[in-house]
Amino acid sequence: MTMRRELTFLLALWKANLLSAMEYRAAFISQVIGMMLNNAVYFAFWVIFFDRFQEVRGWGLDEMLLLFAVVAVSFGLGVYLFGNVMRIAEAIANGRLDYYLSLPRPVLLHLLASRSIASGFGDFLYGLICFAVAGRWTPDAVARFVVGSLLSMIVFLSFLILVQSLAFWMGSATLVSAQAANALLTFSLYPITLFDGTAKFLLFTILPAAFIGAVPAEFVRTFSWSTLAHLLLAASLLLALAVALFQRGMRRYESGSAIQVQV
């Protein structure tokens, strides 16, 4: 019942976003294409790399393709549908939550879905192309791809909510969260087998890049209950933590009234 209500609401918001984007059609299209080219350049790195080295610890071009597919779809869909996810800290610091607080809907959900980043759609398409090129066209591989990418997206969104909610306590967390997002994305796009010891531990915990890239990509390759369980656990735990921290922080929300005073 509530799920359905919120879904109707989300659909209405996404429609408004789409209408906004269509006011600037040319810009939308150029951003989508630009982002696809951008990703292609990064992928060119791996083409050159594997041309020389063939494989590194069980990873080759095929594995990279699937990794790029999952991360690009997860990240792209995340910022396309929930485009304010990069601006939570800013909204907290500037008092832009007022608007969402004065309307009868969940503040966080409403905030996230009130903006759409056009280039995210380019990422999304690029991810689909990668998946198509990787050539796993069986129905169950497609199903695993959908599930894996969605869970990866939840991890990605939750992590950004978590980090930026610090703005409730720190006042400004814009630079810190930009760097955290940057690090998360960078690490999720490399083979997980490169990392060992502490680094690997970090990527499964504090900076959960493994659950955005390597683990869901592994799940797309081969089904296993344990991989699925890990993913589900990570996604639900992070989401619960993120929502809880945001709600806790809302009690401290200052509506932009306590800006830094320059003396």
């Binding site: 429609k15 209408l19 004065s102 009868p104």
Partner: peptide, 30 residues
């Protein structure tokens, strides 16, 4: 929030790039 209306003069609630009617329908859903 279902029972009150609010307007903050310095924080517009209408979507800047859309005609007002689109925001009105969105509010209908909200």
């Amino acid at each position: 929030a279902y029972r009150i209306g609010t307007v903050f003069g310095q924080r517009p609630q209408l979507w800047y790039h859309l005609p007002a009617i689109d925001t009105f329908y969105l509010f209908g859903k909200i």
